[in-house]
Amino acid sequence: MLNTQTTVVRVRPRSLVVLAGIPGAGKTTLLTRLNADEPVTVLDSDQVRAWLEPRVPLPYKYWRVLVHLTHRLRVFWAAFFRPGLLVVHEPSTRPGTRFMLVLAGALAGRSRHFLWLDASAAQALDGQIARRRLVRAHSFERHVRRGSSMRADFEAGWVPFGFASVTLLTRAGTSGGLRIMVP
């Protein structure tokens, strides 16, 4: 029998939940197995990319910045106007990205919770290959370096500025999915 575990995370109603981790860690896969107690809006930059791709006749590298800018604007819009939980898929290894997410949540009056999906660089690279979405090598290396430092900080009790909590997730611990409970 397959050993599957579902991780349960408790958050306040109408929270902004950031599902973070290095590119390829398994965030997208985990979100396909998300179960929540209230309506949930999931935002992922891949949603923007998928919508734009057939409409933009240029290689992705020329419009990548448009995808990420649009994704961030959608986060702000949803923080203010969408009911229920807001789950944002974002590597969040950069302090500026975390600040933007905190700002969106704080201005909209949402409690912020940070979920870190831990994966080794090798596991993440395998994940990228499986999805056929390879991050540029130097960008991936920066994410891995910052992510390793963040993981060590999480284990020491660090909570990123502006977030109410941090939950460290593992691939094995979430093999059966992720459940977000609202008391």
Rank of each mutant, 00 (worst) to 15 (best):
P183E: 15
R179N: 11
G21A: 07
I129F: 00
L178Q: 02
S149R: 12
G157R: 03
R142Y: 06
S148F: 05
I129Q: 01
T6D: 11
W158R: 08
R55L: 15
M181K: 11
G109S: 02
A104M: 10
P39Q: 03
S15I: 00
L52M: 15
M150K: 02
H143Y: 08
V182Q: 14
W63H: 03
L178E: 05
R12K: 03
E38K: 04
S45P: 11
R133T: 09
V67G: 09
G173K: 07
F163T: 03
V48P: 08
R136K: 09
L30D: 13
S120I: 05
R132W: 07
G26M: 06
R145G: 07
H138A: 15
T4Q: 11
R110V: 13
V65H: 14
V11Y: 09
L85C: 05
V65E: 15
R171D: 01
R133C: 07
Y62L: 14
A124R: 09
T70W: 10
A121R: 14
V42Q: 14
A108H: 11
T174R: 03
A25Q: 01
L103I: 03
L85P: 04
T7D: 01
I180W: 01
T93S: 13
L103V: 09
G21C: 06
L134R: 04
F140C: 02
R33Q: 06
S149T: 13
I129R: 05
S120V: 04
A78Y: 08
I22V: 15
W158M: 10
R179P: 03
P91Q: 07
A25C: 01
A164N: 09
I129W: 04
S15D: 01
V144C: 15
M181C: 11
R136G: 11
N3C: 09
F80V: 02
L43P: 01
R151Q: 14
K27N: 03
G96D: 11
Q5Y: 09
M1C: 08
V48M: 12
A152L: 13
V87W: 07
G26R: 05
R110Y: 10
A36P: 02
T70R: 12
A108C: 12
L86R: 00
W77R: 14
T97R: 09
G177S: 05
Q47H: 14
T4V: 12
A36H: 00
S149F: 07
Q47R: 14
V8N: 10
R179A: 14
M1P: 07
G109H: 00
K61Q: 15
P83Q: 13
L58G: 02
A78L: 10
R98Y: 05
H68F: 09
V17P: 02
H68A: 08
F114I: 07
V75P: 06
H143L: 01
E53C: 00
L69Y: 07
D37C: 06
S111C: 10
T6W: 06
A137I: 02
P183W: 07
T4P: 00
R74C: 14
M1A: 12
M181F: 00
